[in-house]
Design a protein around this nucleic acid. Structure first.
Lengths: 171, 171
DNA sequence: TCAGCGAATGTTATAATATAACACTCGATT
DNA sequence: AATCGAGTGTTATATTATAACATTCGCTGA
């Protein structure tokens, strides 16, 4: 049985987008990249990636652990952390440093360093490539004579959708 | 006895800068801001701030706990985390999200949102205000219709000093 | 004066996040 | 068939952080 068939999507994205398409594309890209790179997207890794893509919210490692247990009875913290390490290495997910949580990367394969807009209300994370920001950042880093290994740009606040909802709910 | 007198500086900054001056300025600014704002920089909070300013490296909470125990025998995790919460609220330190650690803020009183250059070799953290980056970032965020609460921009890599040292040590 | 309050701290317990270390399986290679 | 490496199983523990309630102490209004 295919692991993919065992994971259901509990939180269809509310705002009229076709989330199944997001998932399909993300998994398709992941599968393709892993073949190309000669690395193994094992059942466990695939399931974890699917669970992460269950929504656009950042997910905690132990929440993933709880949710994978019905599928992988033997799952322990190491099971999850190893899968997460792999997925991060392959650029298939982002670690959200400010939340100790993880979110699917929709820019896999392209440049992986993105700006994350993290909604404190709905917990959804939006990735933006923000080329102008990245360019200014590169210049700044160069001026500092600094050799970059990795970048994390995390903005917390309220997303457009929540702002609208909250606004219309005011007295 | 003044708490300030009880903390020694174990790690004078190697690269010829007058670290005592950094500390003096940081503590002076902190004391002044707290008076102006009518908040209390209590002995514990002052000591924690001093310990953080012991170096330009990011410090872990439990490391602070170990180091404050000789001064505050009763210190427990909550002691440290409360002091850290206060110092962060007042903009006197930064939380380094990608390290779960803390570093003194040298821009206290001015705008507090800064770019952090974190050296993976020496662990020192350099703050840069990077106005061009911040401007591009604000624009990007505005385009996304996102309401900002806080920003974290953390760049990991090798600082200029370490790059030089490592370069000259190559075979 | 002293009752009551609020801010800070003391204290105990536990939750949440993450890694280390070693054993086992299994398919590919020699 | 031995060996090897990648992935996983398993146990234990380290690290980071918070909850919840008690106590202290200075201040303020009755």
């Amino acid at each position: 049985m295919n692991a993919a068939a065992e994971v259901s999507y509990n939180h269809p994205h509310p705002s009229g987008h076709d989330h199944k398409k997001c998932v399909r594309e993300a998994l398709g890209t992941a599968e393709h990249l892993c073949v190309v790179r000669g690395v193994q997207l094992t059942p466990i890794r695939h399931q974890v990636l699917e669970l992460i893509w269950d929504s656009h919210k950042a997910v905690k490692a132990y929440e993933l652990l709880d949710r994978i247990k019905p599928l992988q009875n033997a799952a322990k913290p190491a099971t999850i952390y190893r899968a997460l390490d792999f997925l991060i290495e392959q650029g298939l997910i982002h670690r959200v440093e400010s939340l100790n949580a993880f979110v699917g990367c929709s820019c896999s394969g392209h440049q992986h360093e993105q700006l994350l807009l993290i909604c404190n209300n709905c917990q959804e994370v939006e990735e933006r490539s923000a080329p102008e920001v990245m360019q200014a950042l590169s210049l700044e880093i160069k001026q500092a004579d600094f050799i970059v290994h990795s970048k994390a740009i995390e903005i917390h606040g309220i997303c457009a959708k929540c702002a609208q909802t909250m606004g219309s709910e005011q007295s």
